[in-house]
Nucleic acid binder design. Structure first.
Lengths: 182, 182, 182, 182
DNA sequence: ACTCCCGGGACAACCCGTTAGT
DNA sequence: ACTAACGGGTTGTCCCGGGAGT
């Protein structure tokens, strides 16, 4: 990703955060990066291309975070699951994680409309699933943890009435505990 | 819901199934019910109104199913959770359940774009959550089951590479087992 | 064709005449009929649709003229060819015929870009050809006359340096003479 | 024409053949010659310039062919007309002639949109016309042959339903015969 | 309880040509 | 001789809703 491309993606994220995906138009992005529409289109051949760029960058960032957390975990068992849980649900939600969540929420609409945009995620999901089920003594439990994480994420994303902080932390911690026995 | 309204909602579902949400336009719906656009708007004041109608009907159908399954379950503990699990993931997926899933997938895009459309779901989620956490001896486990169900559903909805049938059934069964101890 | 549709086609013709096909945009048409783009699009679902409408109307008008001239010709031999020649190249070019020519010139660009637009012409050409070759004693001569007419028309259309009036009339007259022996 | 220019024109022709004029964009040409758009514009100051280049090269090739055929014809009377007929309608259409035809068809759209592009043709048409009418004993017949050729060409170009091969050859042969008496 | 027309606004995609740099 | 980046502008298409009429 070139410098301009990153600047454009940054602008796109800002728009999603500020105004919602519905307002993520090429024009808006162009205005936000202070560039002409033609300029934006030079770096991303289509709007879908841009959205895919957005998603891929997000995935990449998430992966890095997971990898880092994984490295810091001494217990090998369920290490990856714990890393994912911690990456998705940090004990004290920082600004960055909130931001990511909201961007994801926005992109959800985009991918739901056009399944092709999910492509970058598909392969990854497949790999992850294989890893989780083959590495674990109890693949069923592993998948439950994984699915539960997705569920929490989905509810967060949609701003559905969530649990109070205390209970929520308990849920995440329980999942973390469970991960030690997979 | 009047007869015409139901016919319109049926048409809308058909369109979502056949062409995807992106093609769910008032014009398309009108053509599908063999009515003019004005006619459709006579029954639903706006497009959002129609989508809300779609969602509410879907929720209603789901609730009925859950209630029915709940009635058939003799063991009181975690009865509702089991009913929900079975309603969402029938042992042998029938045509109707597949259909519902795909409609939901479509609507996901709509609600992700416009949060107001989620309104009908909010209150229900709140109630459900209160019920699950207060009724259960182990609220944390109850929520995990609930979240896991959402996670599975999300993955299904997006057509992400799923588990093979065997493993998937094991996951659901394990959740069912867990529900007996909440 | 409804009243509005005809008014729109009229406007489109006016634009082609005045500004050239390159300026035949939906927006321009809308402005010319004093209607919104949405209004125009209600009557013609796409620009191509509008152009096809233009062509069909033109063909229809030409056919009527030919039919009329054919009726007025007592000699049966080559009657149709003569009618076509006279319709295309009136002895004293009137305003209407010039207008038609220039509209055709404009549309040429459109059809050359998108062959589908020619569809309305194809069937007609086929019929005409069959008629000319089967009805004539000398089909070869008939086709030559027909082709020559097309050639003259093409040169006119493109505004290529034409013959002086005298010679041109001689050419047309010779074709008329030839038509009497087919 | 420099080497690069010819390579660019070749690429442009390939695009017209493969995708139609509508896709003849500077970008596409650049991609086809494996050069940047700027590079193309370095050799042709504008798109129109490029199209004119295309047309001029085509004309030039046609002229060479005509000249050659003219040289091979011993009978002086109507020699040029016969050469043109044979150049345009070879007895057995070769690959090259088909190709040329299709390129012309494509360019038709371009010139119909922008008359300025015809400029290179105008002078030539004028000269040709003068030559044909002054050289011939029967200028009217000469022009009819010329026009008929244009007509056949036009019909070919547009892919309008043509005559069967037999009849078509008869038509061309008759024109050739006629040319011997001009 | 509808239908026919229409207004109005938005957006993606496309494409040409220029300029700074090498 | 050529590239990368960008500006600026255009156009087709789409879609929602309102309003007059029946």
């Amino acid at each position: 990703l070139s410098g301009s491309q990153n600047r454009i993606l940054d602008a796109a994220e800002r728009i999603v955060l500020r105004d919602g995906v519905a307002h993520l138009t090429l024009e808006a992005v162009a205005a936000e990066v202070q560039m002409s529409k033609g300029g934006v289109l030079y770096h991303f051949r289509s709007k879908d291309d841009l959205i895919i760029g957005l998603i891929e960058r997000l995935i990449c960032q998430y992966d890095q975070q997971v990898e880092q957390l994984e490295g810091a975990d001494e217990q090998p068992k369920g290490r990856k699951l714990r890393a994912m849980l911690r990456a998705s649900f940090p004990e004290e939600p920082c600004e960055a994680s909130r931001r990511t969540d909201r961007v994801c929420a926005g992109l959800l609409a985009a991918v739901a409309t056009n399944r092709d945009l999910l492509e970058p995620l598909r392969e990854r999901t497949r790999e992850l699933r294989t890893y989780l089920t083959e590495e674990a003594n109890d693949p069923v439990a592993a998948m439950i943890i994984h699915y539960a994480a997705d569920g929490i994420w989905l509810n967060d994303i949609f701003g559905l009435p969530g649990l109070n902080n205390e209970l929520r932390n308990k849920v995440v911690n329980r999942l973390v505990e469970m991960s030690k026995n997979v």
